[in-house]
Design a protein around this nucleic acid. Structure first.
Length: 878
RNA sequence: GCCCGCUUGGCGAAAUCGGUAGACGCAAGGGACUUAAAAUCCCUUUCCCUCACGGGAGUGCGGGUUCGAGUCCCGCAGCGGGCACCA
């Protein structure tokens, strides 16, 4: 592993070198020493142990992109703190790490740099693993896995075949982004402003026959079970709920005018507004649209225009709403003789409902804009409760609120919910449709036309159709000798790989040349960690013992897809008999991004933080030539803006403990963390202070385990109280993921211990100091484990901290007998009174009213009311 | 466009249940130690008025509920995450 040279501001360098003068903390030696000791003791290797409570901590495994970045450092530091804490609390802790090793960057490296994806990936894994080791994380490395290993993906091929047998995998046409120049399928991120990233050609939508997983089979269960995920952030649960998007409504069939037996079926969530219908709209990809377009070149052109927009929902939704009048019309189901035009509209999605809607401009904003644009009628049919139905009209805004039906024949006067019920009843009795539940969730398309993924274990035979690869032939391995010099799918180009004999009839057949979406691998890796070397996908005993993951930690960007797919997978695998588990992640913690200032040279090019130096007035200059640098906004660290700080340099210059402590200080885990040199310095200084507090204590320390004195002076007692309050507080903070507060509390404790310098001659002072500093070291051992181990040893302990239990607080020392109670007059603070804890209300009131400040503020008036919240506040209202 | 968040001193933040806003830290200023610097230690530090005592304002903006709102409700703005083939 090599450290790339980075220039640091001179004060940083001298801070380090001068650190050799007095008793100094040598982080290089110390960190290496403890990493070696942990490794030799196999301190973090675990086995199932039914006698002990288990705890499974997992950080989202990384894609081996090349080097560890700060986002990884933050993620793993959070997990490591928790893992070490739970170990100290007596849990049997599983804390594994692995590699999400399939994906596009490896393939891009092959195309651009000619490096084979296998080589590229494994070299990256080596580099990144070495970087992680230097961080001193408490992983059980014996469980390491890489998803590109055939030993891993063969299980996933078996799972797919089981899904296929169960009807959970099926084939249908799906849309892809097609680059007509490169003749390649593009990922959404490879489409930039509607053009292929490499060719620049305008991207087209194309239909392709692909594999889908039937996640919608579990839609209701996935939705219902969100309720049980009470240790997930509320916003993630909400996002998942909305993603699944359950809506109640109805299918309604409309007769096409002048064409006997021709009907169009729509889905609507607002059957109550059926009398406000002014048009019917078909998706550009509706089968009827296809049919009409064959006879109508203008319509065909319109459809082609619509298909020029990419496949992503964001693109479709932000595109201008356009329509095409087909000339057809449909009859209104309840108004004899009334007809409505049939349009094709680009905002109607074929993937949702039936691919056709009825438009009610009065009560749907999108329909309203469409109607205004094309001069279609707008009829209000729901009247707000406080409006006059005779004059109520729709202007620029559709009315989507609660109200009562008007202009609606048999629905008139009914509320929205009642009108829905009545409309559905009538639709059903007329045999024109039925009430139904619809989900926004779509089945998961897993086919990718790429090389670096898990091959789909299926053979296409002209005679037999789709034939699963027999289990004895698994895994279907990727051919190593693929070439990446021409666009398209390398597996498809490969001269021999796809040609096989049909396992059923023995005639010549073709392999499926697609690979799986990489979300496939990450949907079950956490379960594989329970028994990573098992010949089967899972060792049932191990999985039953370790799963679910007790605490999962990762970025909010995975709030929907990865987590939802994993939840689906556990259900599907349960149904296929692999294991028995619905919810893979009992608790979820989402982590904010690591952000940094951006810097720009006068020529507009971005500069790395290591290329600039700050001047005293807050401005910045380029180190190489001294030109002024423009300081830009604080953004997520990214290669494109160059606002990255390489963790390796930080660890090289300050040590892993400093980097870890900084990651935990100041910002709560789920918020963005701004990386600053000053913050790193702060963490570094504090670790050195701790070191001095042990190496050069202000009082002669009693030996380890010296009996507790009977007598403590006031400062010594105050220090002991601080110590025990800190134990309680830090434990609570860690359980709640308020790690920044836990750091602050430990700092408060060491500040409190400083006070003993003055009270050194008091009885019990030295004993209290040892108790306090040992506690501080034990607690910070979850955050800066190397230094803590070293100090623990210096304090005379033979057992490593990694094997030492969490301290117990003496509850008698954590509660004060008196409390300061705030006194307000009319809600404004006017003073405080010191009262016995739990003092009676009238006593508190009396003490409050006796304060001179309070009587002054009352201005001679008598109190109208006095609110007393015991131990907290007295508010006098005059 | 749709869904979901976030916004508190010069800066990162804290305030567990609606009850003393700013713990802890960074930066800055002053001081001690030192030949000097670094390191370290001590003090000040939300803003405004006041020598001081004290007073007033203040949690993105505008409203509301409440004895009391950073916290709850309604509306708005700015910033960010996701939108199904990035991982």
């Amino acid at each position: 592993m090599s450290a790339s040279p980075v220039r640091f501001p001179s004060n940083i360098r001298s801070a380090r070198t001068s650190a050799t003068m007095a008793a100094r903390y040598n982080f290089r030696e110390t960190e290496a020493k403890w990493q070696r000791i942990w490794e030799e003791a196999k301190a973090f290797q675990v086995r199932e142990d039914p006698k002990r409570p288990k705890y499974y901590v997992l950080e989202m495994f990384p894609y081996p992109s090349g080097r560890i970045h700060m986002g990884h450092v933050r993620n793993y530091t959070l997990g490591d703190l928790l893992a070490r804490y739970k170990m100290a609390k007596g849990f049997n802790v599983l804390h594994p790490m692995g590699w999400d090793a399939f994906g596009m960057p490896a393939e891009n490296a092959a195309i651009q740099a000619g490096i084979h994806p296998t080589k590229w990936t494994y070299e990256n894994i080596d580099t990144m693993k070495a970087q992680l080791k230097v961080m001193g994380l408490s992983y059980d490395w014996s469980r390491e896995l890489a998803t590109c290993d055939p030993g891993y993906y063969k299980h996933e091929q078996k799972m797919f075949l089981d899904f296929l047998a169960k009807g959970l995998a099926y084939r249908k046409e799906g849309w892809v982004n097609w680059d007509p120049v490169d003749q390649t399928v593009l990922a959404n991120e490879q489409v930039i402003d509607g053009r292929g990233w490499r060719s620049g050609a305008v991207v087209e939508r194309r239909k392709l026959s692909q594999w889908f997983l039937r996640i919608t089979h579990y839609a209701e269960d996935l939705l219902q079970a969100i309720e049980t995920l009470d240790k997930w952030p509320e916003r993630v649960r909400l996002m998942q709920q909305n993603w699944i998007g359950r809506s109640e409504g109805a299918y309604i069939q409309f007769d096409v005018v002048g064409q006997k037996d021709q009907r169009i079926e729509v889905f609507t969530t607002r059957p109550d507004t059926i009398f406000g219908m002014s048009f019917l709209a078909l998706s550009p990809n509706h089968p009827l649209t296809d049919e009409l377009a064959k006879r109508n070149p203008k319509l065909a052109e319109f459809v082609a225009d619509c298909n020029r927009i990419g496949t992503s929902e964001a693109e479709l939704e932000t595109a201008e709403k356009i329509g095409f009048d087909t000339g057809l019309s449909v009859a209104h189901p309840f108004i004899p003789g009334k007809t409505h035009p049939v349009w094709v509209a680009n905002f109607v999605l074929m993937e949702y409902g039936t691919g056709a809607i009825f438009g009610c401009p009065g009560h749907d904003q999108r329909d309203l804009e469409f109607a205004r644009k094309y001069g279609l009628p707008v009829i209000p049919v729901i009247c707000p409760p406080d409006a006059d139905p005779k004059t109520f009209a729709i202007e620029d805004e559709a009315f989507t609120g609660e109200g009562f039906a008007i202009n609606s024949d048999f629905l008139d006067g009914l509320g929205v919910a009642e009108a829905k019920r009545a409309a559905i009843a009538r639709i059903e009795s007329d045999k024109r449709g039925k009430g139904a539940v619809q989900y926004r969730l779509r089945d998961w398309g897993v086919s990718r036309q790429r090389y670096w993924g898990c091959p789909v274990p299926v053979i296409h035979c002209e005679a037999c159709g789709i034939v699963p690869v027999p289990e004895k032939d698994l895994p279907v391995r990727l051919p190593e000798d693929a070439t990446f010099d021409k666009p398209g799918n390398p597996l498809d180009h490969h001269p021999t790989w796809k040609h096989v004999d049909c396992p059923k009839c023995g005639k010549k057949a073709r392999r499926d040349t697609d690979t799986f979406d990489t979300f496939f691998e990450s949907s079950w890796y956490f379960a594989r960690f329970a028994s990573p070397h098992s010949k089967q996908a899972f060792d049932r005993k191990a999985v039953d013992y370790w799963l679910p993951v007790d605490q999962y930690i990762g970025g909010i960007e995975h709030a929907i897809l990865h987590l939802l797919y994993s939840r689906f997978f556990m259900r599907a695998l349960t149904d296929c008999g692999y294991l028995k588990l619905a919810e893979p992640f009992a608790a979820l913690q989402t982590q904010g991004m690591v952000v940094h200032e951006t810097y720009r040279a006068p020529d507009g090019s971005w500069l790395m933080p290591s290329e600039i130096a700050k001047t005293g007035d807050g401005a910045a200059r380029r180190l190489s030539d001294g030109v002024p640098v423009e300081i830009g906004r604080i953004e997520k660290m990214s290669k494109s803006k160059k606002n990255v700080v390489d963790p390796e340099n930080i660890i090289e210059n300050y040590g892993a403990d400093t980097a870890r402590l900084f990651m935990l200080s100041d910002s709560p885990p789920d918020r963005d963390l701004e990386w600053t040199d000053a913050g790193v310095e702060g963490a570094w200084r504090y670790l050195n202070r701790l070191y001095r507090m042990v190496a050069e204590p202000p009082l002669p320390l009693p030996p380890k385990g010296a009996p507790m004195p009977n007598d403590f002076g006031p400062r010594a007692l105050a220090a002991r109280k601080a110590t025990h309050r800190t134990i309680v507080g830090v434990g609570d903070d860690i359980e709640r993921f308020h790690f920044n507060k836990a750091v602050a509390r430990i700092r408060e404790l060491t500040n409190a211990l400083d006070e003993l310098k003055e009270g050194g001659r008091e009885p019990g002072a030295a004993w209290a100091y040892r108790e306090g500093i040992e506690t501080a070291v034990r607690l910070i051992g979850t955050m800066a484990p190397h230094l803590a181990e070293e100090l623990w040893e210096m304090l005379g302990h033979k057992e490593t901290l990694a094997k030492t239990a969490w301290p117990e607080a003496d509850r008698a020392l954590t509660v004060e007998d008196t409390v300061k109670v705030a006194v307000q007059v009319n809600g404004k603070l006017r003073g405080t009174v010191e009262l016995a804890r739990g003092a009676a209300k009238d006593e508190a009131e009396k003490a409050a009213l006796a304060l001179p400040n309070v009587t002054a503020a009352m201005n001679g008036k008598a109190p109208k009311r006095v609110i007393v919240v015991p131990d907290r506040i007295v508010n006098v209202v005059v």
